[in-house]
């Protein structure tokens, strides 16, 4: 195992607290919460649901949304790169793009998540090790150990807690982006092929160069073909967010398990039996609402994008107008 304060990130399903920040156990929002033992009914629940840990639970929904907000554009970027590589005229590059697309899609995504988080972590530390400690002569892999010099650790052993969390989170984002980038690449590749060939020929007839044709003709027109695939991918991405839990990020699944488990009066002011089922029911409802809203928004965008396009949808809009 790696040395240092925290066990290496992917090995623990539970995140590691280097310097546990004390979370207030009592609600600070309502004044009547000062003595939880006397509370009943609605008051008990309103106090229970506003404890410090519950506030952290609500914040973790923000983590999920943040992950989506960061991952979606990054994955799209990876996808764009992959699709461009796959249709490159330089054959090895096009092979590379196609291998990236097909290998990631052929293997369960969760395996990639578990793999990339360790692989990226080790890769980064290996590179830093090579740069920062060039005269280190012991081998890095010794049996079951992965040893790099201490100044090559990521993040450094004495780094503050938030840096550890931020590093774990960005590894997760990168992993998500690599996996979903392959799927996006597949969609975009298909969309680029779907743009009518006459458009490309016309561009050539006007004397546009290859590059100009790509950026001015192909890319603006491909989105309407890509959108069904991309919106499907967005739905899949939403539903993949709970996997953050497996990557060691304190997300909603982590808190639902933590808060739902049965609590005795010895350790908490709000004892309750095993409520994990209800917490996960809450998460289920959250995801149902989220996907439903996404569906409605994406439908709107589809209609908007079809405007003025040479497709069935676009034609129907033209006739209706």
């Amino acid at each position: 195992m790696k040395g240092g304060g925290c066990p290496p990130l992917p090995l623990t399903r539970q995140p590691c607290f280097l310097s546990p920040v004390p979370i207030p156990t009592r609600s600070t929002i309502f004044s009547f919460c000062s003595d939880p033992a006397t509370l009943e009914g609605i008051q008990w629940y309103s106090c229970y649901l506003t404890t410090g840990k519950h506030l952290a639970f609500y914040m973790s929904f923000g983590t999920v949304l943040l992950l989506l907000a960061v991952t979606a554009p990054t994955a799209l970027l990876f996808g764009f790169g992959g699709a461009m590589a796959a249709r490159a005229r330089f054959t090895p590059l096009s092979w590379l793009g196609k291998i990236y697309i097909s290998v990631v899609r052929g293997v369960p995504d969760i395996a990639f998540f578990l793999f990339f988080v360790i692989a990226l972590d080790q890769g980064i530390e290996y590179l830093r090790h090579k740069v920062k400690c060039p005269d280190w002569d012991a081998p890095i892999r010794q049996g079951n150990d992965f040893l790099v010099c201490s100044i090559a650790k990521m993040p450094l052993g004495d780094a503050p807690q938030w840096l550890h969390e931020a590093y774990g989170f960005s590894l997760a984002v990168l992993t998500f982006a690599i996996v979903f980038g392959a799927f996006a690449a597949n969609v975009l590749f298909g969309a680029m092929q779907a743009v009518p060939h006459a458009q490309i020929e016309t561009a050539a007839a006007y004397g546009l160069s290859h590059r100009q044709t790509f950026w001015r003709i192909l890319v603006p027109q491909m989105w309407t073909y890509a959108l069904p695939g991309l919106s499907n991918l967005w739905m899949v991405l939403i539903k993949a967010t709970p996997l953050l839990f497996l990557l060691g990020v304190e997300d909603i699944v982590f808190w639902a398990r933590e808060l739902g488990g049965s609590k005795t009066a010895k350790f908490t002011d709000y004892p309750h039996p095993d409520w994990r089922m209800w917490y996960f029911l809450g998460l289920l409802v959250f995801y149902l609402v989220f996907t439903r809203v996404s569906e409605l928004v994406l439908d709107r965008i589809t209609t908007r994008l079809a405007h003025g396009q040479a497709t069935v949808d676009g034609e129907a809009q033209r006739k209706a107008a």
Partner: peptide
Amino acid sequence: IFLFRGSPLFIQFFFAYFLFLS
């Protein structure tokens, strides 16, 4: 169909497991 397609399988597993436990 909406219920099972609209929510993550991962959460479905968790929910079902705790439901079965109770």
